[in-house]
């Protein structure tokens, strides 16, 4: 694979610069972000090496130039598309994090239903029984099918799992930050 790694060669200033990391949850359950917090005390080591840009953790809403972007969740609506494109445009390396981002996961369960009928069934006036789907322009519209992130933008790495464990994320990130091609041992993505 031609997936990029970061240049962290010892003789450049790059070694000491703090890397910038953005994270986003598209249509996911935040379980993958919880896993990120699951690295526990190691988070203090992590913040010595990286600085968080746009992320639910920092509550920063827009993304600046970053080294690494982590995307949780599938692409289910127009807002997801905007957020994902922003991350892709700003991040040198984009990582699909967890089953939803990698495959569509749970949200994609709706893919065998017609999105229009589904909305009309869910939003129904209780008294009259007629559909009344909210039409506020602030609400993102749903895509007809839920997509994994790599069907909408180019993705450099995929981390499987629902969610991937804290240890998995730690290993992956420390490899990347160290300028290495990330490698997961079998027990880090063995689930049975």
């Amino acid at each position: 694979m031609q997936a990029p790694t970061l240049d962290r060669s010892p003789d450049t200033a790059e070694t000491t610069r703090k890397l910038r990391v953005a994270t986003a949850s598209l249509s996911g359950c935040f379980g993958c972000h919880m896993s990120l917090l699951d690295i526990d005390a190691r988070i203090t080591e992590l913040v010595k090496l990286v600085e968080f840009d746009r992320s639910p953790i920092t509550d920063i809403k827009t993304c600046g130039p970053c080294d690494i972007g982590l995307v949780e969740g599938a692409v289910a609506n127009s807002e997801n598309v905007h957020v994902l494109r922003e991350l892709r445009a700003n991040c040198q390396i984009l990582i699909a994090l967890g089953a939803c981002a990698v495959n569509g996961g749970l949200p994609a369960q709706r893919n065998h239903l017609d999105v229009g009928e589904m909305l009309e069934d869910v939003y129904r006036d209780i008294d009259e029984g007629l559909p009344c789907v909210p039409d506020d322009p602030e609400l993102p519209l749903l895509l007809d099918r839920v997509r994994p992130v790599n069907e909408v933008v180019r993705v450099d790495y995929f981390i499987p799992g629902c969610p991937p464990s804290g240890d998995t994320l730690w290993k992956y990130l420390t490899d990347l930050i160290g300028g290495r091609m990330p490698r997961l041992d079998y027990d880090l993505f063995r689930y049975d």
């Binding site: 127009s78 598309v81 017609d114 999105v115 229009g116 909305l119 009309e120 559909p131 789907v133 909210p134 039409d135 322009p137 602030e138 993102p140 519209l141 749903l142 895509l143 007809d144 099918r145």
Partner: peptide, 18 residues
């Protein structure tokens, strides 16, 4: 891919397109 949702919401605003 947004067309079906546009239909049931009758939306045509700028946000309703990609």
């Amino acid at each position: 891919a947004l067309e079906r949702a546009r239909q049931v919401t009758s939306r045509e605003d700028a946000q309703a397109h990609l």
